[in-house]
């Protein structure tokens, strides 16, 4: 589903494989491997060798970000992002390239099964389905309107 909504996608075996996959993706897009990363424990604990990384809030100069998805919705290929001190909101919108890490164990089949997992609402819950786009010029789709031009999902198969 995620590829149908114009996102790209790859699977890796464990969290430790994420840096290599991210590096490969960015180089493939001709973007330098510098990323701003959401300070979630899963992401801060990885060895990001080969990439220049910073754990802080994204600003407009950052070209690429790595984020940790709270969950994924299979029905629509949607990423679920829940804001917190570990997951700043701007990472999903300011950079041109957004790489989202999603654990397979966090997939739900539909939205109805997502809400019970969230509990008390944070400032934002972002349901993101593909990269930013617009059809405001003669109803023809162009990607990268205001948000990311490209959205790459790295699905982590292991449970730990």
């Amino acid at each position: 589903m995620h590829t149908r909504v114009q996102g790209t996608f790859e699977g890796v075996d464990s969290l430790q494989d994420v840096p290599l996959a991210a590096h490969r993706y960015l180089v493939g897009q001709s973007v330098s491997p510098e990323v701003v990363i959401s300070p979630s424990p899963e992401l801060t604990s990885i060895n990001w060798k080969g990439l220049k990384v910073e754990f802080r809030v994204a600003n407009r100069k950052d070209r690429s970000s790595v984020t940790m998805a709270f969950a994924g919705i299979a029905e629509t290929g949607t990423l679920v992002m829940v804001s917190s001190k570990q997951s700043p909101i701007n990472h999903h919108f300011l950079p041109e390239f957004n790489i989202a890490v999603l654990k397979q164990s966090k997939l739900v089949d539909c939205m109805e099964n997502l809400w019970p997992l969230i509990g008390e609402h944070p400032r934002t819950i972002n349901l993101i389905t593909g990269p930013s786009k617009t059809a405001d010029i003669e109803q023809t789709i162009v990607y990268g309107a205001h948000g990311p031009r490209a959205l790459h999902v790295i699905l982590v198969r292991s449970t730990c």
């Binding site: 300070p39 809030v57 917190s84 001190k85 944070p122 819950i125 972002n126 349901l127 990269p131």
Partner: peptide, 22 residues
């Protein structure tokens, strides 16, 4: 004609005390 629009966002109040942005 989309199964889901790109961004569906739920806003709840302002940023929380330890949030990094918002």
């Amino acid at each position: 004609g989309q199964i889901m629009s790109v961004y569906t966002t739920l806003f709840n109040g302002p940023k929380r005390i330890d949030d990094l942005d918002g």
